[in-house]
């Protein structure tokens, strides 16, 4: 029998209790949604864990462990439910088990009605300060540093990503990641070649080209001395975040703490056209997934027009706990490393 250290187990309990107290006080409803689903969200870059249900008559039905509670929570929002939060286990296949990655992990996800990604920065900062005080009472409070993707590119890559993307056609009000795909590919490939970086294969998608630039030229230089909010990501990356019309940007942010990505937040997209475009695009890519899964094609229509304007955020709780403890990996908060 391995001897487990009690400290992180007790700290996790304190962390979750504090999160629940915070959201209960703020008037959010705690919800619990299923971990097993027959129609998971199609996310191109996430592989699923699959299983089979066996009915008494011996027939079988494919089921999948959820990679996040997003689909379910949005269903609830579309049915008129109030601002809500959940602490949920999430499962992601096809990922390596390393310092900061686990195939199974815990996520805090909340949705706030009539809110935006920007206004959720304040909530994130408030929650973070509270949790830091609980888990690391001796650490000094930390000021959040807020940086836009455009500033980050100007500072660290030495060029304006916005100018590039506007040149690619992203100033058109109807611009989208599919309509501007070819021009975006051309302009980002040009930047990669100019910087003597691998320009990707012929079939590479704009978001892969962008990530090559970001990961090589920008991310290693980001100011990680304080908690960092990196906001306004390019709308060329297909997500369920709302595109800010007439700009190349999507209304979303990622939070880094000590250089590790611990949270992200969107102003949620709820327009039918955009949701459908995302759904179809991701399903197309998912067709080549190692674990193929059906998705609910009615989802965009169910959500659009029904889900009220809101903002959603997700926080990786294992990472947050480990970092607040001063750990350099998830090892210290694992109970049974698989």
């Amino acid at each position: 029998m391995p001897q487990y250290d009690w400290t992180p187990i007790v700290q996790r309990s304190l962390l979750y209790r504090s999160i629940r107290e915070y959201f209960d006080k703020a008037g959010f409803l705690e919800v619990e949604t299923p971990l097993l689903t027959h129609a998971p969200i199609p996310e191109a870059h996430i592989e699923l864990f699959s299983s089979q249900a066996i009915t008494p008559d011996g027939s079988r039905k494919n089921l999948y462990l959820v990679p996040s509670p997003e689909v379910w929570m949005k269903h609830l929002l579309a049915q008129g439910m109030p601002s809500m939060y959940q602490i949920s286990r999430c499962f992601r296949n096809g990922e390596q088990h390393d310092k900061w990655h686990r195939r199974e992990f815990s996520m805090l996800e909340w949705y706030e009605l009539s809110s935006s990604a920007d206004s959720n920065i304040a909530r994130m900062a408030e929650l973070f300060a509270l949790l830091q005080k609980k888990i690391a009472p001796n650490s000094p409070p930390e000021e959040f540093h807020i940086l836009t993707m455009e500033q980050a590119f100007r500072n660290y890559a030495g060029f304006s990503l916005e100018d590039d993307l506007l040149n690619a056609g992203w100033n058109r009000p109807s611009a989208s990641f599919t309509s501007e795909a070819e021009s975006t590919k051309a302009i980002l490939s040009h930047r990669l070649i100019e910087r003597a970086l691998f320009p990707g294969s012929i079939n590479e998608r704009p978001d892969d080209l962008f990530h090559r630039l970001f990961i090589t030229l920008v991310e290693p230089h980001l100011p990680f001395q304080q908690p960092l909010i990196l906001k306004d990501w390019p709308a060329l990356i297909p997500t369920l975040a709302r595109h800010i019309p007439g700009t190349p940007w999507a209304d979303r942010w990622e939070m880094y703490y000590q250089g590790v990505e611990i949270a992200n937040c969107y102003t949620e997209e709820n327009r039918l056209e955009a949701l459908t475009e995302y759904w179809q695009d991701q399903e197309k890519i998912k067709a080549g997934a190692a674990v193929p899964a059906a998705s609910d094609e009615n989802w965009p229509a169910l959500i659009a027009g029904n889900m009220p304007p809101c903002s959603g955020a997700a926080v990786g709780l294992d990472r947050l706990l480990a970092l607040l403890r001063g750990d350099k990996s998830l090892r210290g908060v694992d109970i049974a490393p698989p």
């Binding site: 996310e43 870059h45 990922e95 390596q96 390393d98 990655h101 978001d207 892969d208 962008f210 990530h211 090559r212 970001f214 990961i215 991310e219 990501w233 990356i237 297909p238 997500t239 990622e254 990505e261 992200n264």
Partner: peptide
């Protein structure tokens, strides 16, 4: 080092 951007392919640095 593996790098998984928030919404994107997995990369290796």
């Amino acid at each position: 080092e593996f790098v998984n951007p928030g919404k994107g392919s997995a990369f290796v640095r």
